[in-house]
Deep mutational scan, measured.
Amino acid sequence: HNLTITQGKLFFHYNPKLCLSEIHKMEEVSGTKGRQERNDIALKTNGDQASCENELLKFSYIRTSFDKILLRWEPYWPPDFRDLLGFMLFYKEAPYQNVTEFDGQDACGSNSWTVVDIDPPLRSNDPKSQNHPGWLMRGLKPWTQYAIFVKTLVTFSDERRTYGAKSDIIYVQTDATNPSVPLDPISVSNSSSQIILKWKPPSDPNGNITHYLVFWERQAEDSELFELDYCLKGLKLPSRTWSPPFESEDSQKHNQSEYEDSAGECCSCPKTDSQILKELEESSFRKTFEDYLHNVVFVPRKTSSGTGAEDPRPSRKRRSLGDVGNVTVAVPTVAAFPNTSSTSVPTSPEEHRPFEKVVNKESLVISGLRHFTGYRIELQACNQDTPEERCSVAAYVSARTMPEAKADDIVGPVTHEIFENNVVHLMWQEPKEPNGLIVLYEVSYRRYGDEELHLCVSRKHFALERGCRLRGLSPGNYSVRIRATSLAGNGSWTEPTYFYVTDYLDVPSNIA
């Protein structure tokens, strides 16, 4: 807008934040220059609390790290170098490059900038070799853009010569660093050979998330399962459950009422301010606690030095998902009996873990797994792929695949051998790939016309006998059925096997 004052003059007093240069501009645009008398524009009460600059400061050096910015700028000295009290560095987070010096300023003089007072450097006698002032900004957020400017702080001049310097606002972004852990990993099994893994992005990506790394490792069953005799009275049979499938998407929606109208769909109840505040506090606490764990609990591995020492970490090797089922080394339970199943799973520490690289999504279907087997899954978020990966501390989750139908069934015939004193040795093959492992066998036998009897055969007993022995049988026709019990439950009964026990007292003698 054009402003013209045809008559009258300007009068400025007691404006401590208004620089004289701005008042002189007002004289020019209003056409009143030359009308004012000496005392109409006070030299001592206008701009006496402001830094009124008329020179431009330029930054000469900028260096960044993930949490620091090192700045240096060209030296500046007023005509009387004693008038320079120091520099004021202003900075704040700036997602967009549209910041002005006066953003967030209120009537009390406060604003949204963080201000650092910096002492002037030592003055050199040689004007050509003056030290460049600077400042190291610490405690910054990774991968965050900051708006920065600097200006001088000078003393009051009796001659009211307006001098000083100020830089333009520059924008500097800190470097990326390792992201925080992925949030809320959930693993479920939808079949006997697959596990579905879902997660949420890290709360602090500290860069642009480029991919996720998912490692999985087959877990050995508890050692007590191999040692305890679950045929003993009072000892509860062990059981394991597989990871249940995901709930429906509708039930997972946030901010939804727990109660549904019987007449149909209901609208979600909005969260109160107290609920939102509580969630923010919980989120802040979780982030602080995660940072504490990362800094205190997890110790970084030592990389190899120039002395030739090897990095103890196993090298990563990509495998196809079809090879995942046989990740671990199978060892027989008892070496003397080769027909026992290889369900003991000690994992070799030198073995390469299978892994998958996930790009542009937060889910993965891990296939080719062994049925009813526990897996430990390790999830890392990465925001750099080359020249070397920059990934987060791992988040861990466990899951067990679903049982395989008929995996616990005894394959092959049940054979028998009759000894003296009416002892019958029953023999059968253990299931080759049971659900988890076989903890015991149930032997059901009966003599024709009598009630059915049951015998429990422990895992250890089966390994020693290759089956079991029935003792003290009365003469007669017998039928026997056997079924295995694994961590997933009972298998199917075998087809009945028949044998006849004679009275050993009636056996004919070869003595003449």
Rank of each mutant, 00 (worst) to 15 (best):
S203E: 12
D204L: 10
N206F: 12
I209T: 14
I209W: 03
I209S: 08
T210P: 02
Y212P: 00
V214G: 03
V214K: 00
F215K: 08
F215G: 14
W216L: 13
E217L: 14
R218F: 03
A220P: 13
A220S: 12
E224W: 09
E224S: 12
L225D: 04
L225K: 05
F226T: 09
F226C: 09
E227T: 07
E227D: 10
E227S: 11
L228G: 14
D229M: 10
D229R: 03
L232H: 12
G234W: 06
G234S: 11
G234K: 07
K236Q: 12
L237W: 14
P238T: 09
R240E: 14
R240V: 12
T241N: 09
W242T: 07
W242I: 05
S243T: 07
S243N: 12
P244C: 09
P244L: 11
P245Q: 15
F246Y: 13
F246S: 10
E247I: 04
E247Y: 13
S248L: 07
E249Q: 15
S251E: 12
Q252T: 11
Q252N: 03
Q252R: 09
H254M: 08
N255I: 08
Q256G: 00
E258L: 14
E258W: 13
Y259F: 07
D261V: 15
S262Y: 10
S262M: 13
G264H: 06
G264M: 10
E265M: 06
C267E: 13
C267Y: 12
C267T: 06
C267F: 14
C269H: 06
P270G: 01
P270C: 02
K271D: 07
K271L: 12
D273F: 14
Q275I: 11
I276P: 06
L277P: 04
L277H: 12
L277N: 14
L277A: 13
E279R: 12
E281T: 09
E281W: 02
S283M: 15
S283H: 13
R286D: 14
R286S: 08
T288L: 12
T288F: 03
F289S: 06
D291V: 09
Y292R: 07
L293G: 01
H294K: 12
H294E: 04
N295T: 08
V296N: 13
V297I: 11
V297R: 12
F298L: 05
V299A: 10
P300M: 15
P300A: 10
K302W: 15
S305P: 13
G306V: 11
T307E: 14
G308E: 08
A309I: 07
A309E: 14
E310R: 06
E310P: 08
R313F: 12
R316W: 15
K317N: 08
R318G: 03
S320Y: 14
S320R: 13
G322H: 06
G322M: 15
G322V: 05
D323L: 07
D323K: 02
V324G: 11
V324F: 06
V327A: 11
T328Y: 14
T328F: 13
V331T: 15
P332D: 09
P332L: 10
V334S: 10
A335E: 13
A335F: 11
A336M: 15
A336Q: 03
F337V: 10
F337L: 10
T340F: 13
T340V: 05
T340W: 14
S342R: 14
S342N: 06
T343I: 08
T343H: 11
T343F: 08
V345F: 05
E350R: 15
R353V: 10
F355G: 09
K357R: 08
K357S: 14
N360G: 07
N360I: 12
N360V: 11
K361H: 05
K361T: 10
E362Y: 14
S363V: 14
L364M: 09
L364R: 09
L364S: 13
V365E: 08
S367F: 07
L369K: 01
H371A: 12
H371I: 10
F372N: 07
T373V: 12
T373I: 08
T373G: 06
G374K: 10
R376W: 09
R376E: 04
R376K: 13
I377T: 02
L379E: 00
Q380D: 10
A381T: 12
A381S: 11
A381L: 02
C382I: 01
C382L: 00
N383V: 09
Q384P: 07
Q384T: 09
P387A: 10
E389F: 12
E389A: 06
R390F: 05
C391A: 02
S392T: 02
V393Q: 02
A394C: 10
A394V: 07
A395E: 09
A395F: 08
A395G: 14
V397K: 13
S398V: 12
A399W: 03
T401V: 04
T401L: 03
M402V: 14
M402I: 11
K406H: 09
K406Y: 05
I410G: 02
V414F: 03
V414G: 01
V414T: 03
T415N: 03
H416L: 09
H416W: 09
H416K: 05
E417P: 03
F419L: 09
F419Q: 07
N421E: 15
N421G: 04
N422F: 04
V423T: 14
V423A: 13
V424R: 04
V424M: 05
H425G: 08
Q429F: 12
Q429S: 15
P431W: 00
K432H: 14
K432P: 13
E433Y: 09
P434S: 10
N435D: 01
G436N: 03
I438S: 03
I438Y: 02
Y441R: 00
E442N: 06
E442G: 08
V443N: 00
S444L: 05
Y445W: 13
Y448M: 14
Y448C: 10
G449N: 08
D450V: 09
L453G: 09
L455I: 08
L455C: 12
C456V: 02
C456E: 03
C456R: 03
V457A: 03
S458P: 05
K460E: 05
K460S: 12
F462P: 01
F462G: 02
F462S: 04
A463L: 12
L464H: 14
E465W: 09
E465H: 11
R466C: 15
R466Q: 04
R466D: 11
C468E: 01
G472M: 10
G472A: 13
G472E: 09
S474N: 10
G476C: 00
Y478M: 00
R481N: 05
R481S: 05
S486E: 00
S486C: 01
L487A: 04
L487P: 06
A488N: 13
A488F: 07
G489W: 06
N490V: 06
S492A: 13
S492L: 13
W493R: 03
W493C: 01
P496I: 06
P496R: 05
T497E: 08
T497C: 15
T497L: 11
T497M: 12
F499A: 02
V501T: 04
T502H: 04
T502M: 15
T502W: 05
Y504S: 13
S509V: 12
